[in-house]
Computed example of a mutant assay.
Amino acid sequence: MNVKALDSRLPAYARLRDTLTARIARGDWTPDAPLPSEARLAQEFDVSIGTVRKAVDGLVEEGLLERRQGSGTFLRGPSFSSSLFRFFAMRGADGTAAPIPSSTVLSRTRATPPAEAAEALGTQDTIRITRLRSLSDLPVLYEELYIPAERFAGFTDLPEAAFGPLLYPLYFEHFGVLVKRATDEVSFDRASATVALHLRIDPGQPLAVIRRTAFDIEDHPVEWRIASGSATGFRYRSEIN
């Protein structure tokens, strides 16, 4: 794809940035191997090295790429390993920060989403996932997730061995969906019988509820989830400078 084939009203570096983004979305590069060198990209797209550098700089600033000293430029995987758990005061027995909780997928089926999820994802055709996150065998979060069936065809047929503690790497490895950003909204509620059963708490006990919408590198919504945890362990911290 030649950069000049894109919107000529944009500067060359912006056209190249959009081209590189499309190539990344297509799965041409992965976080495990560096992108081609600036000289090689300049030759491939018939632009100057300065144009390549400016385009790559923009993608680095956006958090899509990262430069590693002495190794090259790499696709940057999403860093959401424990982001939901910043809302909960979880410590090990010795008082140190807890590791990434374990994850158990309880169900994954084709389902019609609730109105809130359908609106966020822009579709009624979704796959519903329920998941329990635990720390040292103690349930911490019960999650209900919805993903577009069209983007994740075959998700319900994946072997159990494919699932690790995190879903975002699985989205990318099996479906080429790279999560770039997510928005979280926090509220409070009381535990339903289902949530209480999974979290081993009494029905009606206060809950902290986190609603998340995740977006891919082209800013399309690819996941909506609602995560519930006991409000007794909830915390919120904000730094104001």
Rank of each mutant, 00 (worst) to 15 (best):
I100M: 15
E62N: 07
P203A: 14
I127P: 06
L170N: 03
G154Q: 11
G70P: 07
L121C: 06
L10S: 04
S8C: 08
V105H: 02
A55P: 02
T19S: 12
G27C: 10
V209R: 09
R15F: 06
A153W: 03
G204Y: 03
G27K: 08
E119V: 03
G95R: 00
R128E: 15
P159Y: 05
T112S: 15
G70C: 12
R108H: 13
G154T: 01
A149T: 05
I24K: 04
S103L: 14
Y146K: 01
I240K: 08
D184L: 07
D7H: 07
E38D: 15
D184W: 04
V140W: 00
P113E: 12
P36H: 02
S81A: 12
A117V: 02
A227C: 10
I226R: 14
R40Y: 04
F234Q: 11
P169H: 00
Q43S: 12
R237I: 15
E223H: 01
E144P: 00
H174E: 15
T30M: 05
F85R: 01
A117D: 09
R68M: 12
V179K: 03
E150G: 08
R190Y: 09
T156W: 02
G233Y: 05
P113Q: 06
W224G: 04
V222L: 05
E38H: 10
R151I: 07
P114M: 07
R211I: 00
L75R: 03
A89I: 09
I49A: 13
T130V: 11
R151Y: 09
P169S: 07
S238G: 08
R200C: 13
L84S: 07
S82Y: 02
A193P: 00
K4N: 13
S81L: 10
A97Q: 09
G164Y: 03
G27S: 08
T232E: 12
F45W: 00
I127M: 12
P165W: 04
G77S: 14
K4L: 14
A97Y: 09
L106M: 09
G70M: 11
R91C: 05
Y171L: 12
R26E: 15
A33N: 09
F45A: 06
